[in-house]
Design a protein around this nucleic acid. Structure first.
Length: 955
RNA sequence: GCCCAGAUGGCGGAACUGGUAGACGCGUCAGACUCAAAAUCUGGUACUCGCAAGGGUGUGCAGGUUCGAUUCCUGUUCUGGGCACCA
């Protein structure tokens, strides 16, 4: 009886689906465990071997936890809304709902092929009205909430209105407009519209005009994390700044808690670091400078993290968009400033980023130093960003690189306040120098002077300490069709939320996806939409993914997004697996939404993901063929009959001997015409990796691969055609993708799963190499032979196992369990291999041993384990078995030979009982004749006894 | 430029708190089976000197701590990733 993986896997796949084998209940005596994969965006390209890496890891862990007695929630769904589907619709005229449907069907069949233990009864896609009803609902709650900084939590907006009517906004400064002040009487006196305007500045989901990243090619606004290096992340189109009415999430209010929360979660340091950088918290001070010959209410407010350098200020710089610029510019500089502004406006974000030219213009105005009254020239320059801090800085060229370069370029005076620490050649941003030329700060170390300066500023009312964040509020609207509609009606310029019973506000079916008028989305072209004055923007791709993990807990609930008992039972995601590319997008937004839902009391935890594992990328291992090119007499012939040269000849093609070889070969192919040796070249071409075995090309398959290569000729090395290699991103375009389906067909899902794990640590990126899967396949067959013999069939017996056999299986259990616990699935697979090798060597076919082997195999090779478990006579699933407990006494021998070293050099061996104490070991060592000889009468300083390893006598 | 992670045979990678470096697999070499090949099975395989017994060298590089370092510390090189006018 052979190992027929194909029949076995088919049988169990069908049975699992028919029986709903992995459906899980919210009601269980077992402790819960929630294992989640980042759900996929169902692209048209389908899965390649890189995608399932994380899914396989999480599946192994989910199955392992179930064997360990947990009630495991392991769901899967689809992130179905988003730009690419719509772009595809525009390009191919297929409705996004249709293409998304097809793609999902394809994904599902690929996933089913691999044997995952998902509870499909809980599955959904974010584009289901039953799902996005709740996305819209949560949006409305964000709209209906403000952030109370005093108690550091979100509260209903109604409570804020009550506060305003009693005390005005004195206790709750406006996050959207810090200068906004009013008392209770003023609030009461405001009209409805004015009040709504004010409240809008407080809402957690708000609408405002703002500079947004506008991408003309995509016809939409993008969030900061969707813009990479001045171009759109998707498509690489240019992005410009544009003022538009937009919806935003006031994520900045959560900046501190998002930072603090990182302490309580188990993410990689790199991931925490990335999020911390993105939030970009900095401590410093805001300082007010008076402006010379300007009215006393005109203050130039700057933000600095280095108030200690206040006496090193040589000039001020304000952003070109700064509101004060126009007011302070003097008459004789007005033309120059206007020219400069025109220049700045003409440059795209991208040019600016690429060039980093030093540009700027003097305004003619002077600020007055708050302590020594000196006049400081005020400049404007694009290197100061309007959106950060106050949009104005005090420049300290001796301590800041950018200020230094600016001063050099415009030949401004540079004051040295740090003595020898400043060379005059470059700025020195140290905090450890002792201050000079700094009035009351003289003699202080800069680090300490920061506080002293702030204290003095606050004392004199010239400034105050201030925390700033790099993170901005997140743009939350897209001028697109394929997303969640906003449940908002515009009533005379005031947004009015739909009532809960009006949800979901369903996305209408449309046939044209072109943009609407004046930067509006395609929905603006739908009459039924505009007639109701509904908001025409849709939500961004990250809306649904910001809370989907909660829906799995209670997926069919019509009354609420997720009942409190359900979220209380399942709680946080215990293990979340996905790619690190979502570090600042999805992970930040979902953390914020979770905190918000917690604040408002709908869920009982603040962090969605307890532990996060970032699976590495599987890179493609590309293969190249080298097409011979020449200008000689055969050039024309070679266009008809391409010649490909093996890698070894092509890559060192300049050597005369190789030219000789090529020349002869070409003569053979074409008859007489020789090769012009002066003009040869090789163009490397990607070749489909699936017709290459290792680096050896299957030349027949290559001729069939494409019609233009049907007559291809090959110049071989040692009778073979070798390909060149490179590690690149896995992509259809580079012909280096490998489809899991092909591997599953050839070796089975179990072999494929195990091999994918065997490749290396899950977190690590590595190139794909199909070759090694044979080894895992051999292992599974070897394991099979412990149970079945080709001729005799079943070979297991009911005999009692020997100590040696117990030792083998318990050692295997221990190692496999350790590895799985540590999330080290590559060593887990190895541990199983070692175990099977040992049992094979022992010719062990004892049922009581094999049963344990099947159970520990189950997470890794679920189909095979299920089949063997069934064959061994069990009626229930192997996952309902208990993970075997290790019996320690079989793990080690009762006595063992230990190497004995003197100062690290092994000199002899001693047989020592397992339970020997340190004292007994020392006595035995000192009694040994060899040791005494080496000690030569000396007393040892100490005797190091490392159990199971060695003994070292230190002299 | 700043921050983070990593560097181990021909290759992917083991070595969990410092304790026999190279587990396991691929590849390769030899052998068995076969008329032969494939498949399968068995054994060897870090480098190096040696017929052998045995010796020497080895975890990017240079130092340090330690009886003992792939593991800890300092410096340095390279590779991968993140951030990049954020004052």
């Amino acid at each position: 009886m052979e190992y027929n993986f194909s029949d076995i896997e088919k049988k169990w796949r069908q049975r699992w689906i028919a029986e709903g084998a992995y459906e899980v209940s919210n009601d269980s005596d077992r402790p819960k465990f929630y294992v989640l994969d980042m759900f996929p965006y169902p692209s048209g390209a389908g899965l390649h071997v890189g995608h399932p890496l994380g899914y396989i890891a999480s599946d192994i862990y989910a199955r392992y936890k179930r064997l360990k007695g947990f009630n495991v929630l392991h769901p899967m769904g689809y992130d179905a809304f988003g730009l690419p589907a719509e772009q595809y619709a525009i390009d191919h005229g297929i409705h996004p709902a249709v293409s998304t449907n097809d793609n999902i069907a394809n994904f599902r069949s690929q996933l089913d092929n691999i044997g995952f233990s998902y509870d499909w009864s809980r599955s959904f896609r974010t584009s289901d009205p039953g799902f996005y009803k709740w996305t819209q609902w949560i949006f409305l709650q964000l709209f209906d909430s403000w952030y109370d900084r005093t108690s550091a939590r979100a509260r209903p907006i109604g409570e804020l209105e009550a506060i305003f009517s009693e005390t005005g906004n004195a206790g709750h400064p406006c996050p959207g407009d810090p200068s906004l002040r009013f008392d209770a009487d003023e609030w009461v006196a405001m009209g409805h519209r004015r009040r709504q305007d004010v409240l809008m500045h407080y809402r957690l989901a708000y609408c405002g005009y703002g500079e947004v990243n506008w991408c003309e090619a995509l016809g939409t606004v993008l969030a900061n994390d969707e813009v990479v290096g001045g171009v759109s992340e998707r498509g690489g189109y240019p992005v410009v700044k544009k003022k538009l009415r937009q919806w935003y999430l006031r994520i900045t209010e959560y900046a501190d808690r998002l930072l603090e929360g990182l302490q309580s979660v188990d993410f990689s340091e790199a991931m925490k670091e990335t999020q911390t950088n993105w939030i970009g918290k900095s401590f410093g001070a805001e300082i007010d400078f008076a402006v010379y010959e300007a009215p006393p209410d005109v203050k130039l407010r700057v933000y600095t993290t280095r108030p200690d350098t206040i006496f090193g200020v040589d000039f001020m710089v304000i952003a070109p968009e700064h509101p004060l610029l126009d007011k302070i510019t003097t008459a004789d500089q007005r033309v120059a400033v206007q020219e400069y502004l025109a220049y700045v406006g003409s440059r795209s974000e991208r040019e600016r980023m690429a060039e980093k030219k030093i540009t700027g213009c003097f305004t003619g105005a002077y600020a007055i130093h708050p302590f020594n009254g000196l006049h400081i020239p005020i400049w404007t320059s694009e290197y100061v960003l309007a959106g950060y801090g106050t949009g104005a800085i005090m420049a300290v060229p001796c301590g800041d690189e950018r200020d230094f370069k600016f001063a050099r370029y415009f030949q401004l005076h540079i004051t040295n306040i740090i003595g020898d620490a400043f060379t005059g050649e470059e700025a020195n941003p140290t905090k450890d120098a002792v201050l000079e030329n700094s009035d009351f700060l003289d003699g202080l170390v800069m680090r300490d002077a920061i506080l002293a300066a702030i204290r003095k500023l606050e004392e004199k009312g010239l400034g105050m300490r201030k925390v700033n964040y790099r993170m901005r509020d997140a743009a939350f609207s897209r001028q697109r069709y394929w997303g969640e509609p906003f449940p908002i009606v515009w009533d005379d310029g005031v947004p009015v939320p739909l009532r809960e019973k009006e949800l979901p506000l369903e996305l209408p079916h449309i046939d044209k996806y072109g943009p609407g008028p004046e930067g509006e989305g395609p929905l603006a072209n739908v009459p039924a939409w505009t007639a109701r004055r509904l908001e025409t923007n849709t939500m961004p791709g990250y809306a649904g993914s910001s809370w989907y993990f909660l829906r799995y807990m209670d997926p069919h609930n019509d009354a609420t997004f997720c009942s409190r008992p359900a979220s209380d039972y399942w709680g946080q995601v215990d293990l979340y697996i996905g790619g690190s590319e979502h570090a600042v997008g999805h992970l930040l937004y979902s953390r914020m939404w979770t905190k918000f839902l917690f604040d408002r009391g709908w869920i009982g935890f603040q962090e969605p993901f307890k532990r996060l594992i970032n699976q590495g990328m599987i890179q493609g291992s590309s293969r190249f063929v080298y097409r011979l090119e020449t200008r000689g007499p055969v050039a024309g012939l070679m266009r008809e009959k391409p010649i490909f040269v093996s890698a070894g000849l092509a890559t060192s093609g300049s050597e005369p001997e190789i030219h000789e070889v090529l020349s002869l070969a070409v003569r053979d192919i074409f008859g007489d015409p020789g090769l012009d040796l002066r003009d040869i070249g090789f163009s490397p071409l990607h070749v489909d990796v699936n017709i290459v075995d290792g680096v050896e090309l299957d030349t027949e398959a290559f001729r069939k691969w494409r019609s233009e290569y049907a007559d291809a000729e090959f110049i071989l090395e040692e009778g073979k055609y070798f390909c060149g290699t490179a590690v690149e991103k896995m992509s259809k375009r580079l012909y280096n993708t490998v489809n899991p389906n092909d591997l599953v067909n050839k070796y089975g899902a179990d072999a494929y799963r195990m091999y994918e794990m065997f490749l290396g640590p899950v977190e690590q990126s590595k190139p794909w190499d199909t070759k090694g899967i044979e080894g895992v396949f051999r292992f599974l067959r070897k394991l099979w032979r412990l149970f079945f013999d080709e001729t005799r069939g079943r070979v297991w017996t009911a005999e009692k196992a020997s100590d040696q056999e117990w030792k083998a299986i318990y050692g295997t259990i221990r190692r496999t369990e350790d590895a799985t616990d540590r999330f080290s699935f590559n060593t887990g697979v190895s541990a199983l291999m070692i175990g099977v090798n040992e049992l094979t060597d022992l010719k062990c076919h004892k049922k009581e041993v094999l049963e344990k082997l099947v159970v520990i195999l189950a997470p890794y090779a679920p189909h095979l384990a299920e089949e063997l478990w069934h064959q061994l006579g069990h009626a229930t699933s192997v996952l309902d078995a208990a993970y075997p407990a290790v019996v320690d006494k079989y793990l080690v021998e009762s006595a063992k030979n230990y190497p004995v070293a003197i100062n690290g050099k092994t000199r002899t061996e001693l047989n020592i009982a397992l339970d020997a104490t340190q004292q007994q070991v020392e006595q035995l060592v000192m009694a040994d004749a060899t040791v005494r000889k080496w000690l030569d009468g000396n007393q040892p300083k100490k005797i190091v006894y490392v159990k199971n390893r060695m003994i070292n006598v230190v002299v």
